[in-house]
């Protein structure tokens, strides 16, 4: 089972993720050039890049500065979400052995704390959805499902690292959760991990090029 989930299934998951995202990007660009021509009449890379950049750094935008607590939580959540799986020692060893690629890793202890931090951030995000009326009103079951898909690999990973319950079973569940997330990204709202750059670039150019209005 372990051989299967780290072998063929991993190939399938990464394949669907990469091909899915590529198809998504291409279809967005094609659709835009067909139906949103107006966007390209006044395109400005400078304004686009600045908008993207300012929204990628913490407190880089006015919107973020006006909601500091939420911004910190969002950043912790997203940074951990990306960094932990990519720089986790165990993952690195696995990729090295299977695919011959390797890079810098976190120490196991820091990865452990970052995972805790991510779970704490996720709890805040969930509580927000329940407690704040303006967030509750737009929250659907789908939003919780997405959070679950995104956080499940971390919870199970944490359990696996600490070898709680039956280690091997937990580990396999962990790998499956990770693969479910990879597969889900191109088909769900999680695709914002790539589409964010498109929509941000659009608004940056849209508001900036013609009007000089900053979108950050």
């Amino acid at each position: 089972m372990y051989e299967f989930v780290t072998g063929p299934l991993a190939w399938i998951a990464f394949g669907i993720f990469i091909i899915g995202m590529t198809v998504k990007v291409i279809s967005v660009i094609r659709l835009a050039s067909k139906k949103d021509k107006v966007v390209f009449n006044h395109w400005s890379w400078g304004w686009s890049f600045r908008s993207v950049y300012r929204w990628l750094i913490p407190f880089g935008s006015r919107s973020m500065r006006e909601k500091p607590v939420l911004t910190i939580v969002f950043f912790v959540f997203h940074v951990c979400l990306l960094a932990v799986p990519i720089f986790l020692l165990g993952h690195n060893i696995l990729w090295d052995e299977r695919w011959g690629i390797t890079w810098w890793s976190f120490s196991e202890t820091s990865a452990d704390y970052l995972t805790l931090l991510l779970m704490a951030a996720a709890i805040v995000l969930i509580l927000r959805r329940i407690v704040l009326p303006e967030v509750r009103i737009v929250t659907t079951a789908y939003d919780y499902l997405l959070l679950a898909i995104a956080v499940a690999p971390f919870v199970t990973g944490y359990f696996a690292y600490h070898q709680w319950f039956d280690y091997k079973t937990v580990l396999i569940i962990h790998i499956l959760c990770g693969e479910i997330m990879l597969i889900a990204i191109p088909f769900t709202k999680l695709s914002h991990m790539i589409l964010f750059f498109f929509t941000r670039a659009h608004i940056g150019s849209e508001m900036g090029e013609r009007r000089g209005a900053k979108t950050w």
Binding site: V28, I29, L31, A32, K34, K35, D36, V39, S63, K67, L70, F74, R128, L132, E134, V135, V138, T139, T140, D143, K189, S191, H192, L195, F196, F198, T199, H202
Partner: peptide
């Protein structure tokens, strides 16, 4: 089009 579709697809209901 690409804009409406993407906007509706990715709004994370974050409340900002």
């Amino acid at each position: 089009g690409a804009r409406f579709k993407t906007w509706l697809d990715i709004c994370a209901h974050c409340g900002y």
